[in-house]
Design a protein around this nucleic acid. Structure first.
Lengths: 233, 233
DNA sequence: GAGTGGTCTAGACCACTGT
DNA sequence: CAGTGGTCTAGACCACTCC
């Protein structure tokens, strides 16, 4: 069967993939346990473990203690997206970065924002609207809410100089968050700020960031037409 | 300093994160090497390795042999997106899945498709247009090109019964690919097929799939308005 | 209870790369 | 060349969960 040496976890992974493709191990089927594979391949169990864990991470295998390892019936493909800081994304493309604050005010947020950030009703939050430019051309329009109750000292900051994103990255502890990607139809406001046609289809990222159980910030990024987010599987 | 026991790779990771947040290790700075950390924490080097590798995967650390491990200056956040098979996505939401083939023909592709798939000019390819429906409502519009030179037997398949995606998943070896997410402004064609307003902003996924160096298929998925792709960091 | 994956260890060697 | 991360090993124990 396998004449080539199987010693590294990568080659174990390749061989396992080959068997899945060749339908030697069919979707939903149990595959041999780590110890058996290790002895078959002539390597340590830890090496097999590393390979199978990696495949489970990408969604091709399903593993459970005692139950064993199965070939996934629904091969969910996982794609990893890099979400860089906008300044870096723009300068990496060779453009000059500029950030421009459009408005800043402390007001009671609309209901959908209250819901997303799980704020108490009636409390005010900091609302920032800004645009990031690439060599003078609008690149992305940023509409952000910051929870002052979770971010001490935010009210004294001058966000005309530094973008809120960069300030938060530098001054808030490591955080968790959730991200939504979607598309919207641009209205008059987006058209003005992004200098594009009203009615254009625009790529949107919504991101809420949390420390423990409190929302720090909710930001909607609306990108200028033509923006593409790229990844490799 | 550290009174709590640090024995698992997760707790090593937490402690490293704490030090990054507390600016004990600042962005761009070199952190102690694996052996030093292992002796400080009182665990094996492999345990430290596992923790640091995980952090490097999420983009918080940059590691190079001989050069050592540094705190990333640009904290690129990586998000992992699940890309399920459309049938599963629809049924998982509790809707009835239906697939409808709109057209199927073998023609010479337009130039942009030739470029994307690196086909030879003048050669024909299989062009499929279809729509996936959720309980009768258009969910996503699929425009696909298949390279017959890379997929033997594809010309005899009846794609009115089975979607090309599912057939390819089941019949082609495990493949690599690249994915682009973007937004478009829907035209008359999209409006008709997706039963929405012309001019709506639509979420688009472009995917090219390869075996080794040959393109298998290029597919553009145009989702109905309101589609959201969600993930957690 | 028992079988399976999850993890830790101590030691070893390898691979890459900065100097 | 030498220092650092990358990986492998053999063995051990633990944690989960199916029966």
């Amino acid at each position: 069967m396998t004449d080539t040496l199987i010693r590294s976890w990568q080659s174990v992974q390749e061989e396992v993939l080959r068997r899945i493709n060749a339908r030697i191990w069919k979707p939903g089927e149990l595959i041999p346990n780590e110890a058996e594979l290790a002895s078959e391949f002539g390597c340590a169990r830890a090496t097999v473990n590393r390979a199978l864990q990696n495949l489970a991470d990408t969604g091709l295998l399903e593993r459970r203690r005692k139950a064993g390892t199965r070939v996934a019936t629904h091969p969910i493909r996982k794609a990893t997206l890099d979400i860089p800081i906008i300044r870096n994304e723009i300068t990496a493309k060779g453009f000059a970065y500029r950030y421009s604050l459009i408005s800043s005010e402390k007001i009671v947020p609309p209901r959908d924002v209250i819901a997303r950030m799980q704020l108490e009703r009636g409390n005010k939050a900091l609302h920032l609207v800004a645009v990031h430019l690439a060599t003078g051309v609008p690149y992305v329009f940023e509409d952000r809410w910051i929870n002052p109750g979770a971010v001490s000292g935010v009210e004294g900051i001058d966000f005309t100089r530094q973008s809120a994103n960069e300030w938060l990255v530098e001054n808030m502890p490591f955080t968790a968050g959730d991200i939504t990607f979607t598309a919207m139809t641009g209205g008059r406001r987006e058209a003005e700020i992004l200098a594009c046609e009203p009615g254009a289809g625009l790529f949107v990222i919504d991101r809420t960031t949390w420390t423990k159980d409190r929302a720090i910030t909710f930001v909607r990024l609306v990108f200028a037409p033509g923006y593409r987010m790229h990844t490799v599987i």
